[in-house]
Amino acid sequence: MNETVMRFKNKLKIREYAAGYQLYDLRHGKSKGRVWKSSVFFFIAMAMLFILMMTGFNAAGYPVVTLMLMVCMYMCSYYVYMLPAIAKLKGEHIYKSSRLLSKEYFFEIKKDCFIMKNEHEYLKKYYSGLTDCIETDDIFMLAGGIDNTIIVISKRCLSGEENSELSAFFKREMVKQYRRARGRKKGKKT
């Protein structure tokens, strides 16, 4: 029997959706594989730096090497710092351009699926159809399905007890998909 585990209301803020979108982008979007991509550029940059060092840092005499060093450094910083920031900005842009995302949703968490609904939308998703369930300090990000739907649940709207209950439930029901993202550094505010 598919009984209801939890019921709650949820309303997203722009930063929460942006954080969710950023997480999705890191897993499936342009930021996917950014670590190994930036590593490749880093090693090329180091090789170019080594060549320049061998020539006594004669940058004017070896313009191609210098140019490659600069491009690789840029690409390295692009993958490490700029892409996640761009993803976050895009998330904010999506939130601003959508009138639906800022509406309050009523969530019904069941044993094998969850339902989210309001006056404009009704969505039922089975956990087996999801590819990701990522928990951070502020949100739960659920993603998957044929249309790659991103569902963000804000922890702000839940009590501490509900949060831990939901976290334990997702951990239990979505063993493969569940991940706990690292928390923020102490004293760092977003």
Partner: peptide, 27 residues
């Protein structure tokens, strides 16, 4: 599994291309 009822003002834009009609709910 999905029902969506969007009033006109909730639609971001509609693009009619050569072979497809796109209805954008956001950007």
């Amino acid at each position: 599994e999905h029902r969506l009822m969007l009033p006109k003002k909730f639609i971001n834009r509609i693009c009619i291309e050569k072979k497809t009609v796109f209805i954008f709910t956001d950007c």
